[in-house]
Design a protein around this nucleic acid. Structure first.
Length: 114
DNA sequence: TTTGTGACCGTAA
DNA sequence: ATTACGGCCACAA
């Protein structure tokens, strides 16, 4: 189980988060088969950011807040991207009860191949 | 080899 | 609602 392998699993999950929904770092890690590895998700997003378009803005912290420091350039952009695709953002917090992605079993089985 | 640093998380005050 | 703490782990210095 090499690291790049874990990274690719994480990215493949991130890739299928639907527009207008969000997922938490921990949730993505779980779906990638890496429970407890939330920090690896941020690592994956950071190290991959070139190439394919990964919807990094749809990943937020477990408490619904945008992970970047409030007021930072990145936080602003993430906030704007979420708003422009219909996600309600209050300050820098998203209501997970409303916008969190609830993947169906077939979503995972059909779109993920690992 | 040890230490510090993250786009984190669950629990408990 | 916010803070603190321990747990987590790859990576760079």
């Amino acid at each position: 189980m090499t690291l790049p392998d874990s990274i690719s699993k994480i990215l493949s999950v991130a890739l299928i988060i639907p527009e207008g929904r969000v997922a938490t770092y921990g949730q993505v890690a779980d779906l990638a088969g890496l429970p407890g590895r939330a920090r690896l998700v941020s690592k994956a997003l950071r190290s991959s950011n070139e190439e394919i378009a990964i919807p990094w803005h749809r990943i937020v912290r477990a408490d619904g807040k945008i992970a970047f420091p409030a007021g930072s350039e990145q936080a602003q952009e993430q906030r704007q991207r979420l708003i422009s695709e219909g996600v309600g953002v209050e300050g820098f917090r998203i209501r997970l009860k409303i916008y969190q992605w609830q993947p169906e079993l077939h979503d995972i089985l059909h779109r993920l191949k690992y």
